[in-house]
Design a protein around this nucleic acid. Sequence first.
DNA 1: AATGAATGAGGGTTCATTCAT
DNA 2: TATGAATGAACCCTCATTCAT
Lengths: 211, 211, 211, 211
Amino acid sequence: MTDAAKQQVPIDEAVSGLPVPKTERGRRTLRALLDAAALEFGASGFHATGITDITRRAGVALGSFYTYFASKEDIFRALVTDLSAQVKAHVTPRVEEAPDALSREKAALGGYLDFVSQQQLIYRIIDEAEFVAPDAYQGHYRSTVARVTARLEAGAARGELKEGVGEVEAWAIAGMNVFLGLRYGVWGKDRDLAEVLARAHELVADGLRRR
Amino acid sequence: MTDAAKQQVPIDEAVSGLPVPKTERGRRTLRALLDAAALEFGASGFHATGITDITRRAGVALGSFYTYFASKEDIFRALVTDLSAQVKAHVTPRVEEAPDALSREKAALGGYLDFVSQQQLIYRIIDEAEFVAPDAYQGHYRSTVARVTARLEAGAARGELKEGVGEVEAWAIAGMNVFLGLRYGVWGKDRDLAEVLARAHELVADGLRRR
Amino acid sequence: MTDAAKQQVPIDEAVSGLPVPKTERGRRTLRALLDAAALEFGASGFHATGITDITRRAGVALGSFYTYFASKEDIFRALVTDLSAQVKAHVTPRVEEAPDALSREKAALGGYLDFVSQQQLIYRIIDEAEFVAPDAYQGHYRSTVARVTARLEAGAARGELKEGVGEVEAWAIAGMNVFLGLRYGVWGKDRDLAEVLARAHELVADGLRRR
Amino acid sequence: MTDAAKQQVPIDEAVSGLPVPKTERGRRTLRALLDAAALEFGASGFHATGITDITRRAGVALGSFYTYFASKEDIFRALVTDLSAQVKAHVTPRVEEAPDALSREKAALGGYLDFVSQQQLIYRIIDEAEFVAPDAYQGHYRSTVARVTARLEAGAARGELKEGVGEVEAWAIAGMNVFLGLRYGVWGKDRDLAEVLARAHELVADGLRRR
DNA sequence: AATGAATGAGGGTTCATTCAT
DNA sequence: TATGAATGAACCCTCATTCAT
């Protein structure tokens, strides 16, 4: 996790759902635990990661973990929420800079590819949530797709996109983005991401564009 | 799992990578274990499923499990292979009946949506393989996408599709299909699959079609 | 614990074996901890009660506990001593009002039944001491029985009771009292305590009386 | 536990509530676990005893414990039931040999004192059940007292005992017996048990006898 | 080929106690 | 004296795997 990314999403109740520790020392410990958990879960997966792996990396005692989290699942869930917010924080500004609906979708895919190719571990965490914390997983994708849907509908309303595009198209586009990110951002970097972006965008551009 | 589906993919080395038991009784036991494992892994996930859950449901003794499989991961991997073949077996005939490249893609998505909406547990198994048996997971998607790629390239060669379509488009389409299946076939059946199919196909049709 | 009962046994070294806090605030905290401990130990037992349960109920910080007590066992032991004194304080005055040796025993049982039917939690604490602080438990019963023994011997010396009654009879009577209190004062109030008292007294009266 | 005592109460469903293992080896393991648990719980108490203490003494692997018992509490409860049956098995024959109601009570106390002075650990186990498995504890005492009550009522019906003696007297006598056993059988053997028996019996004999 | 008891490493969690502020 | 975060040893239980029958 880059420091930059972290600072975009400071620990507070809005993001993590966790109570903010009363002392500065407490806030440092909580942040250390979350960062360590991201690295460990990302590298080894939920089940292969032990609480001791997390606390050892965070440099705190085992017992301290339970001052901040009720269980291993609890920190995992907090992490998914945290990372989900990071993806959003990374993609949103790029989208907003784009001049029209079609280029907004391209910017979204570009931002996403860029993010996952840097943050491969995070990718694994969110995907594993399907099995560890299905509600958090669904929450992530549903809210992600809700944003896509809103963009498409707004574009259609402004006459920039074909009438009727909405949720179904949003899920389709989200699936494309996720698979392209997995294949070309995580599994292998054997292809230029700019090319992937261009070709993928071209694939759907006509389907989205107003006739 | 429907009996029909099972019979499409009888146990043999080509599919499961397992030696075929010599006796009829052995083959029945192996089949019972695989079926039970599919149900248990699908319902509870890999980690929450115990060997005893599988043997209990299969109606065999715990020790017998190790006559057929070397480990829990082993049966999981066999299952992924087995199910991957089932998807292929379900989709391929429909694709082959289609008259041209574009309608082949539509048939593929239609067949896939149809399959996963019936076989929800299987869906979960293949996805969990990303974390339990990454090679089997990659194997499934790489070979799935390889078929899509081959179809697209063949279509382009015949002049039915745009020149240059290939692997990138195939990954995009696969992602779209998978997400639509997850959302509308598994998470909720709140939308007519025929509509989903039509809209999704329309989204990419122009992008695939020859100009 | 009724306030009345508490005030009969103010905190001082003689009773609890603890140093008396120098400040008024300290004495209040100590009393709050003891009261909270009685409620928690009584309701949940020694092992199921955490220090935090006690401090939370007492309204003090966790760390403050160790200003007053060296360990969980320490407060438990103090409590047993405290409660043992309360039983004595409740029973003794009634005994002293009785005119003769036989009626003194009846008064003792009556007072005991009365006490335990009000103070059920306390009952549990003293009994659990058998396993948590055996010396305090033995101390309680040995001193209780010593008082009974002294009463019986005094009665015999005055010619009101049979010659030779002493320690054995005292343990027997103590056992009766305790079991009757447990059964009819704590486990169930399905029988009038006055009847229990009358019948139990009659059971031993002839055996104690001078021939 | 003497071997004799054990053989009086073989493992079967009637006593322990446990399923009987299907193999001879299984039955040996179960017996070894119960015996080891009695020694460990008796010596160290429920909370200070670890499962490993039990399995180490029984000479079986840790995991085997859970083949037979669901939890530490489970084996404790089974033990209480087992031991409760042993007390009964030890006392009942002596009682039945006695010629009349009064001597039956004397025989019961005598048998009990004899038993507990040999089986001190067992004593501790049953008493600790008040805190670990209150239902098993109440079960033990309620059924013990039910037997006393039945004896007293039968004696009264035959005209050997005072009319009206019953449950209250039975609880009183049980309490007496238990305390005398604790004091003179377990805490100290400083007094001849025959003397204790004689004096205790004399204490209640007149109260029980028909006028 | 089948059975089911036996094995023991492993891991999540608790909680009494300490200590820096 | 009060606070509450930090500590880490201890322990129950799970379960994949082995093995004797």
